[in-house]
Design a protein around this nucleic acid. Sequence first.
DNA 1: TTGGATGCAAAAGTTTTGCACGGTT
DNA 2: AACCGTGCAAAACTTTTGCATCCAA
Lengths: 146, 146
Amino acid sequence: MTPNEYNENLLRQHGLKSTRQRLAILDILDNKQAPLSTEDVYIELQKLDVAINLSTVYRTMDAMRDKGLIREAALAGDNRVLYEMARMEHRHYLVCIGCKKFIPLDGCPIKEYINGVASQTHYAIAGHRLDIYGYCPQCQAGGAGR
Amino acid sequence: MTPNEYNENLLRQHGLKSTRQRLAILDILDNKQAPLSTEDVYIELQKLDVAINLSTVYRTMDAMRDKGLIREAALAGDNRVLYEMARMEHRHYLVCIGCKKFIPLDGCPIKEYINGVASQTHYAIAGHRLDIYGYCPQCQAGGAGR
DNA sequence: TTGGATGCAAAAGTTTTGCACGGTT
DNA sequence: AACCGTGCAAAACTTTTGCATCCAA
């Protein structure tokens, strides 16, 4: 199965029609390792000369989020929502404040902690968000990435 | 020292002039246990019949954030930034998805984990964000808070 | 064929800015 | 007195919506 066929199935399995625009958006989310805002996705599409309207990108991101294909991930310094593919295991990131680079962290350090919170509070835990911020070695050196 | 005098000093110590509007905003942030968006603060001010312009609230929140008096905290379902007082110890929250209630959690469960990340990655860690989402007992019961 | 998806343009909503005036230090 | 802070109105920017057309199933 080609990567394109895979994404076509992915869309249909989630009750969404497979279209040129949606496949292009999935390609971008697949290939970028960092969470992207709606505007980010639109800019990437333009770089690839994909003809698409910004409102379509907004609607597509909404639809994919509602269907569970993508999820809201970390968020940047500004107040935009960033999305990433909803892979099986969730991810946490180490974000460089200087150059905005995202490094995925291995595993989830608070799995057990959350179990404890659940049993103490009787909340039905649905998810969590954890990101760590700092300066990468290059940016600490006042380096290129900045 | 009255609470008001305390906040007056707090502002001056951070290089900000003490004004009626800023004291009112600090009062609200002091008294609410949950992080608030700029708009939230504005609405609270109106409830208290404090005459203030929305753009002043935006500018004040920006200034207080820049001076370290408040910090960006958890964020809600929409994509607004939420602020809270920058107390000595930072806080994490358990947020109910149904009724939007914020429960502060005791301590920070990832202190040690972050030290490990720092030494492995050579990043200069500046901060982190952790929130847990779920449904409180009432909302699980389909209850009032919803 | 049919209902969902898209493009376009306009509207709605949010945040920022310029400028004159007012208030704190 | 000097300068920061505020209100007001306009501008800029982001996101949503209505509607006609298009396209996947």
